[in-house]
């Protein structure tokens, strides 16, 4: 199913939910729950927390769906809810710190995990030195860097989808990917 067709089917479902058929929302949950878990993992790096937070994000989106503008796409809207849910969770637990007082050039603050102990390497399939090095390097990246790499590589999104999801131009997607990969490359230098 193409992106447009998928979006049209999401919107059909949302209109049904808005009309009072709350069971219709379940199809959205089924459709996006794996992706939601994968995204939450990028922020919290713990599978159980990621499941709980995705659940909360679905609940929040259900509560707000009456106000959802059906001229928009569902996933980017849901993504923002999920991301905010994850950031709030990390902030409440004191697990993130803001990287600088000023926002980054694209206007959003960036965060990094306060303590590496918060990271659970068991959340990833790793075997072999290279994989371990990769995940160690990746987990030490700032959240924004991990986010863009995850959307591209683990969620397999196109630049257009990433741009829509993060509400940034495609040129910014490319430059954010470049900076994120450059920092990851520095950490993996001996292997490249």
């Amino acid at each position: 199913m193409g992106t447009d067709a998928a979006d049209a089917s999401d919107i059909r479902v949302i209109r049904e939910v808005q009309a009072g058929r709350r069971e219709a929302f379940e199809s959205l949950v089924r459709k996006y729950m794996r992706r939601a878990h994968g995204i939450a993992m990028q922020f919290v790096q713990n599978s159980e927390d990621a499941l709980d937070l995705s659940q909360d994000a679905f609940l929040k989106s259900f509560k707000a769906i009456g106000r959802f503008d059906t001229n928009q796409r569902f996933f980017p809207w849901f993504y923002r809810i999920l991301k905010n849910t994850c950031l709030t969770f990390l902030k409440r637990r004191g697990l993130v710190r803001r990287l600088s007082l000023s926002a980054t050039p694209d206007g959003e603050p960036d965060y990094e995990l306060v303590d590496d102990a918060a990271v659970q390497p068991s959340a990833v399939l790793s075997s072999g030195e290279l994989r371990e090095q990769f995940w160690q390097g990746y987990e030490k990246l700032a959240m924004k860097d991990r986010e863009i790499i995850a959307l591209r590589h683990f969620q397999e999104m196109s630049y257009q989808e990433i741009a829509d999801t993060l509400e940034i131009p495609i040129g910014t997607v490319m430059s954010r990917l470049f900076h994120a990969r450059r920092r990851l490359k520095e950490r993996l230098e001996p292997h490249l």
Partner: peptide
């Protein structure tokens, strides 16, 4: 390398 990495589902 990045493409070969898999998250545990």
């Amino acid at each position: 390398i990045t493409n070969s990495m898999v998250l545990r589902e």
